[in-house]
Each structure stands twice: as C-alpha cells, then as structure tokens.
Write a protein that binds this DNA or RNA. Structure first.
Length: 265
DNA sequence: ATGGTAGACCCTCTA
C-alpha cells in the first residue's frame, strides 16, 4: 500500500529498439503509471510479455513505422479513447486515454509540425496539421475538465512553452516547436486551469527533456523542454513532486527523450 | 563546413 501514485511520460523512439533500456528503467524506477510515445510499431508487435512480467497492465494504440502511444499501469486499465476526437480521417496513432488507479490519464504524441513552410513560403501542411491537432486537443480537454476529476495529460507535446525552454531560442524561433501559433494554442490549453508539474517542482529554468541525436546535443546540453505532465485542478490538489530523470538519456542506445515524472498523493 | 544521428524498412520518410 503506497501513499502516492507515480506517473511518468517517456517518448521511447521505438519500443522494440528501446526494450532493454525501458525494462531496466521500469525495474529501477517502477512508476505506477507510464505514458509512452513513439512506439513505432503496431499494437500486435508491442513486447507485451516483457512489460507484463514487470507487473504492468498495458493499453496501446499502435501504428506501423510511425507514432504509436501506450499506457502502462500497475492497476487495471479501462480504455476510454484510442484516438483524439474531432477528425475521423486522422489515421495517426497519437492519443490514448484511460482510467487507471482512480485517475484519468492520456498519453499524447502531439505532431512535430516541421517543416513550417512549403517551397512557396506558405504554411506547410505538416504545420497546419499540428495546429489543427492542437485545436482538437483543446476542444477535447475543455470537455474533460467539466468532469471535475483528477486528470493527468502527459506526453511529447513537441512544444517548448517559452524561450527559456530552448537552448537556442533565436536559432530555433521558426521551428514548429517554438512558433507563436503553436505556443498560443498551448497557452489556451494551460489557461483552462491545468498545472505543468515541472513548473511547480523545478520553477522557471532550462529543464530539458529532449536532446537531438545530432551535433553532440546531449554532451553540449543543447536540449528542449517538450515533454510535459499537465494536471487538472483535482490532480494538482494532490500534487507531491515532479522531476526529469536524465539517466536514460546518458546511456548507450538511448532515446532522444528522457522520462519526466510526477507523484500524486 | 548548408553538415550531423537514429529508427523503420525496402529507399525514403520522420524526427
């Protein structure tokens, strides 16, 4: 019987390629709930036995080659949604929502959105897809918050909320992760009354969760904060602490993201 | 120096 529930989010960049890293981290940290992104495999190919052997129930929304999200929990999982509402034609596996351990959780893999411009200098379709997806997320979350329940919306938001969250704000100003149109939509989401767990525990600072594989970004600490755990008011009332576990990023065969976690009383 | 790395997978796309 534990007095707190620990929840982590981690973009693993292929669950199959990352399985040894994921298993060792789950054994060491043993979060009660884990939100995974970028499985890069169909649900049938998820390494179910290896994860279940660690004491987790598993719910997945997979896709071949790209995207794919999952929820792991030591408690039973009741899946609510396996895609974000608002566009029936959207085939990308970027959202799964469930009840577990008395909490509504979602694992979110928000579209990257780059490149932002096409060859004519107009908004690229990938950027417009990101903005549309964020609008859909905001609409959905607005409805969720009417339930007055503990909700944790975690994942790779592909969004750096402010310049302090980016190692080179000027150089990356035109990235979809930093563009004002993206940040405005994220602010709309936060202004619904959500709490960013890392803001509360670590305050304003360069608390990165992602470092590019290229140009020695990890060794130079050229990172971005784009992975977030957002809490509804009822979850924030139970907030205990949060952190970023940089350990997995330093290892061989690492994901380019590292886990972000929080605990609720 | 217009680069570089990683993963899936069939060769180029996504990040």
């Amino acid at each position: 019987m534990t007095s707190t529930t620990s929840i982590a989010t981690w973009n693993v960049n292929s669950i199959k390629a990352r399985l040894p890293r994921a298993v060792e981290w789950l054994k060491e940290f043993s979060p009660d709930i884990v939100l995974l992104q970028e499985l890069k495999c169909v649900s049938e190919a998820f390494p179910l036995m290896e994860i279940e052997d660690l004491g987790y129930n598993v719910a997945t929304a997979g896709q071949k080659t790209y995207n794919g999200v999952a929820i792991l929990s030591k408690s039973p999982i009741e899946v609510e949604l396996t895609k974000l509402p608002g566009d029936a034609s959207d085939e990308q596996a970027r959202y799964i929502e469930a009840f577990t351990a008395g909490i509504r959780v979602a694992s979110i893999y928000l579209p990257n959105g780059n490149p932002t411009r096409d060859e004519d200098g107009n908004d690229h379709e990938k950027f417009l897809y990101k903005l549309g997806w964020m609008d859909r997320l905001n609409t959905h979350v607005k409805g969720l918050l009417k339930h007055d329940e503990a909700i944790v919306l975690g994942g790779d938001y592909n969004l750096a909320p402010a310049d302090v969250d980016v190692f080179d704000p000027k150089g990356l100003a035109d990235e979809a992760l930093c563009r004002p149109e993206s940040r405005a939509r994220f602010r709309t989401l936060m202004n619904m009354g959500l709490t960013n767990a890392i803001d509360v525990s670590l305050g304003i600072g360069s608390h990165y969760s992602y470092w590019d594989y290229q140009r020695g970004a990890w060794n130079k600490d050229n990172g971005l904060r784009i992975d977030h755990l957002l809490l509804s008011p009822q979850a924030a009332d139970r907030f205990d602490e949060a952190g970023i576990d940089k350990g997995p990023r330093a290892k061989e065969k690492a994901s380019d993201h590292t886990p972000v976690w929080c605990t609720l009383r």
